[in-house]
Design a protein around this nucleic acid. Sequence first.
DNA 1: AACAAGTAGTAGGGCTTCCGACTAATGGAC
DNA 2: GTCCATTAGTCGGAAGCCCTACTACTTGTT
Lengths: 184, 184
Amino acid sequence: MDVITNPTYDGAMTAETLGRPALSADPIAAARQQWVEHGWGPAAPGMAAITSLMRAHQIALSRVEATLKPLGVTFARYEVLMLLLFSQRGSLPMKLIASRLQVHPTSVTNAVDRLEAAGLVARTAHPDDRRALIVTLTPSGRAVAAKATAALNSEVFVQPGLDEQDVRELVEVLGRMRQSAGDF
Amino acid sequence: MDVITNPTYDGAMTAETLGRPALSADPIAAARQQWVEHGWGPAAPGMAAITSLMRAHQIALSRVEATLKPLGVTFARYEVLMLLLFSQRGSLPMKLIASRLQVHPTSVTNAVDRLEAAGLVARTAHPDDRRALIVTLTPSGRAVAAKATAALNSEVFVQPGLDEQDVRELVEVLGRMRQSAGDF
DNA sequence: AACAAGTAGTAGGGCTTCCGACTAATGGAC
DNA sequence: GTCCATTAGTCGGAAGCCCTACTACTTGTT
């Protein structure tokens, strides 16, 4: 017997059996309803927003990773490559990469380790500061960055699953959220 | 010398030095401009949307984790606790947890392992299917779920960093995105 | 009844992120 | 000119997520 339809473990005495409107098929809408029913109404919209963000991120990331996979790079490493590509010289200090990508320094160490092992970047000494290292794009790193961008543009970015209006609003709303969090 | 201001490694011949308008302080707006300048205009809005999503998720998750940390649970484990709490019996099969949370079965195994080790849930045999396991909330698990929800509601959900209007729009837009991805 | 196909859950491994601790090197204070 | 605080980067460890492979158990077919 499918447990989903078995009232022994779930579903007994739920909204449906009590004659109230059925929970939506959307798990987030369902959670929001639970929030309201438990008297947490004021927090319900925020909960729904944060939860939606988590799930949408999950979906977007998996599409991106699937697109990049054939090229042997992950999104984290792709971001490093693009940052270098946009820097004219094709090279940036580790520290600057971390601050631009807003990740922990150890995450950059990790990403650069793998990019270097794949021959896409090289670590060289910083001429003025012997503590620092400069990460430089190799020709092969440039090629991968170009291919990856072409793939992402055509397979994900031009069809993000939203119409133009929604895309615009999403960027604006998240922009305000990032700004209020002190992101920029 | 601060490398950020040193034109040797970055910044030389950029938009600014060429007299064009300076890149915005917002790294995503900067990336979008790069996209346009490289002739990837049609993909620029989608790129900005996906990137914003990634960063906003990062911000939201870190706020949530910081709030939960004192209680000894993570967001992933909190979601499992709440799912159980909302299920009247306080118990659900592993499989159902995975499908409701839309994560891989092994992620549930991992989360339940830790929750069980902390005494917040218990694994019991499924009476009708000896392959399956039922995860049940313990009294202490219930208590932690309640405390965690109170903390999240007051510290994050009632002030998500957006006004009511933006929260509503965000949920709606992401809802359409999730729906178009076949999420529900 | 017996065998094949499908399902539940777990082990192992890869990848990301963060944190805390540690090493070197820089640089300001006295 | 030392000495100490700060800074750049790395190492080790914890957690999350996914994937593949594998075991045990069900279920449908012949």
